[in-house]
């Protein structure tokens, strides 16, 4: 790891100021992706801005029918929160499936969403639940947030402050884990709110994406039967030592059907 200057601001305003003044400054949440990246010398920031001391970024609030989760809220907190379990149990389930206990004790929702790892779990929930990402400079709709491989709509020095999830009528997340890393080979988040259904996929493509054909079919008939003949094209999907694009395309169908069944339980 190359050395860097370390900053531990106490407020969001101070964090933004430090980030703004430097060319190659990176925010750090739990460091669960950033530190491994630095160890491999895949990044060389001049400055690391630790958000761990910014108290206003952590915590879960219920605002009407929305669950608002602060960027620095750890996976373990989301997985065990009574508010999350009551409002959106599928989200608590998802958080409990991330990595392992030590990773969940440090990793945060903001870090995961900002990172847009193709195999990360939270992006599926953000997209599937039509969440809104609030930053220190504005708001982003889920549909225009995940741009591609490790690429989001966040601007230079822009910090996620919280993510707001509207409560669905029904939802479920199904994940086929990579048995070694425990990241998603394919994960599908299905949510039904009124007559609208959203189906969001992670792990399969360069970034999380929705499957319109399944959404339309499920809006008419919310059963796994309704999507059993929908095939996902393998073109452009991820292909690596863990599985081919065709294998992942097939898994999307399987995980989507299981998610619909789980949501209906």
């Amino acid at each position: 790891m190359y050395d860097f200057a370390y900053h531990r601001p106490k407020s969001l305003a101070d964090a933004a100021t430090v980030l703004k003044g430097k060319d190659e400054a990176r925010p750090m949440a739990g460091g669960m992706t950033l530190i491994p990246t630095l160890k491999q010398r895949l990044a060389r920031p001049t400055d690391v801005v630790d958000l761990g001391g910014v108290k206003e970024l952590a915590g879960i609030k219920v605002e009407g029918s929305n669950l608002v989760i602060g960027a620095m809220t750890k996976h373990v907190t989301v997985a065990t929160s009574a508010d999350v379990k009551r409002m959106i149990p599928a989200l608590a389930d998802l958080a409990g499936m991330i990595g392992d206990p030590a990773v969940r004790n440090r990793g945060t929702i903001g870090g995961s969403v900002a990172n847009s790892d193709p195999a990360a779990d939270y992006p599926a929930a953000v997209l599937g639940l039509n969440a809104t990402i609030t930053t220190n400079t504005g708001k982003h709709a889920a549909d225009s947030f995940f741009k591609g491989l490790f690429e989001t709509a966040l601007g230079e020095g822009e910090l996620i402050t919280s993510i707001s999830f509207p409560k669905p009528d029904k939802a479920a997340y199904m994940k086929f884990r990579n048995p070694a890393s425990r990241y998603a080979m394919v994960g599908v988040f299905v949510a039904k709110t009124g007559n609208t259904v959203r189906v969001a996929v992670t792990g399969a493509g360069p970034a999380a994406f929705r499957v319109k054909a399944m959404e339309d079919a499920l809006a008419k008939n919310f059963t796994s039967e309704a999507i059993k003949d929908i095939k996902i094209p393998a073109d452009g999907l991820n292909s690596d030592i863990h599985g081919s694009a065709e294998y992942r395309a097939h898994l999307v169908g399987v995980m989507a059907r299981r998610a619909v069944d789980a949501a209906n339980k």
Binding site: Y6, R8, G31, M32, I35, P36, D50, G52, V76, P101, A102, V103, N105, R106
Partner: peptide
């Protein structure tokens, strides 16, 4: 793995300064 303030963490993925 060590315990930091009572919870398990991977000490290879935490900076010493974060444990201040």
């Amino acid at each position: 793995v060590v315990h930091v303030d009572g919870t398990s963490v991977k000490s290879c993925t935490m900076l010493a300064v974060q444990a201040e």
